[in-house]
Design a binder for these strands. Structure first.
Lengths: 248, 248
DNA sequence: TATTACTATGCGGTTTTATGCAGGATTCAC
DNA sequence: GTGAATCCTGCATAAAACCGCATAGTAATA
């Protein structure tokens, strides 16, 4: 059998079953696993499949949703870069949804071994191709607006675990009212997430600083770190620094 | 024998078998392999065949594989259309992951008000812009291979609820072995999902019919409906019909 | 017919490719 | 952790491809 034929067969199998195991292919095609491994390598190199330990996965299955445009990407990327510095290997990390968190997870170094709990399916999918991260998706009613899981199920779940650190984006933060949000479900959720974590990181693009939403999430006293796209010494942040919040 | 005759012979062989080996041709035509190689070169240069190491392939063989984004989309769309007919407003629906389910959810009529429980973040996101559907994402460890939530958390959750109908894609179904799959986690999961539902719908593109995977999910007796892209009267399905499975 | 010019073919030697195998390292799953 | 599966690296080998060259065949023409 010619190599190209094997390749065609492999691709067909992957399209059929979304994944293949090297061992299966080796017996099916009656060649050594080394050969299969080399085949998968080549198909991976030519971007036709995604090679993983033990076999390969369909590419189309892996990335069906194209990432839509994100507002203020550069600012969020800057925030993401700083936020990653707070994560150490072995941590139990809790994250909300939001594009800033998404940016952060995309930029997560490949050698970081952490367990990420998240209420956001997008975050889970984003982390799917990270080699060392274990992802636990916290289930519940899926909120169409905010694209995260909400509701009592999530809140109850959060009562049972204690996390090292929690990363949240926010819609409003101000000296007077602390962290605020506009969606009741999200507020419940964030309160539970904050209570479940030893440390709280709020990520906020400078545009949203000092804005107030309808409902209270938590006072500034509970915020351990505030990460913005500004220089941490920027005087806009002076008031927050005085409150004892670590700025990045 | 003239060169032209050889070329004609080679083309004929390739049309017949989709491939030829240089060595075979050399003995069949009683010329040296070098000559054959030169012949194949010329035919390749004139775009009549595709030369590869060891022989040559039909042109159609090489081409179509760049273009497959999602495999067998049309078949899956056909299945999705039929599957939707089984859903009525007010139902509690349980779904697995997989591209067929995804197609189905994409095609879900806007006036259908159902509650969809799913282990697939992709399904949840797909349903996010549906006006009437309530989505419950069942949380757990996120499997990077299969892009769904797996593990004991999910299985436990499924023990507590009874669903009206469960839609599953499958990697293998056959008369002898019933529904089969290749991933242990997925097998556990599917078993729990099947037990949690009053009715089970298996969706399977015809190419996968009568294929067997490593591990058993459930016997055919548990399958209430089998939906394929074939006409339900197709004789390929006769055996399944005799087992008392409803075909669509 | 003989000459010439050109193409096609085969052959020997070399290089490249494909594949399998052994071992040790790595990773995974329980 | 620990054992099993998987992967990587280097190596060996055989098949295939390549290269240059000699020669056989072909065709056109004087």
């Amino acid at each position: 059998m010619l190599k190209k034929e094997r390749h065609a067969f492999i691709i067909k199998q992957i399209n059929l079953h979304n994944k293949v195991l090297s061992a299966d292919l080796a017996t099916a095609l009656n060649v050594s696993e080394d050969t299969i491994r080399r085949d998968l390598m080549e198909l991976d190199d030519s971007r036709q499949i995604v090679k993983v330990h033990g076999g390969a996965l369909s590419k189309s299955f892996h990335y069906p949703f194209q990432h839509t445009d994100i507002y203020a990407v550069d600012a969020k990327k800057a925030i993401a870069r700083k936020a990653i510095g707070l994560i150490k290997s072995g941590m139990m990390v809790l994250t909300g949804g939001g594009t800033t968190v998404l940016e952060m997870m995309q930029a997560l170094p490949q050698n970081l071994a952490v367990t990420v709990f998240t209420i956001s399916p997008l975050v889970a999918l984003q982390l799917a191709d990270h080699p060392l991260v274990t992802v636990i998706l916290i289930g519940g009613e899926f909120s169409k607006d905010s694209q995260v899981c909400v509701g009592s199920q999530v809140v109850n779940y959060l009562h049972e675990i204690k996390f090292d650190i929690c990363f949240l984006g926010t819609n409003g933060i101000s000296i007077a009212d602390g962290v605020t949000d506009s969606d009741l479900n999200i507020v419940h959720l964030k309160k539970a997430m904050i209570n479940a974590s030893n440390r709280l990181v709020i990520m906020c693009i400078s545009e949203k600083l000092n804005s107030v939403q309808r409902m209270n999430v938590c006072p500034l006293a509970k915020v351990d770190y505030l990460i913005t796209d500004l220089d941490p010494d920027n005087q806009v942040l002076d008031d927050y620094r005085e409150k004892g919040i670590q700025l990045y």
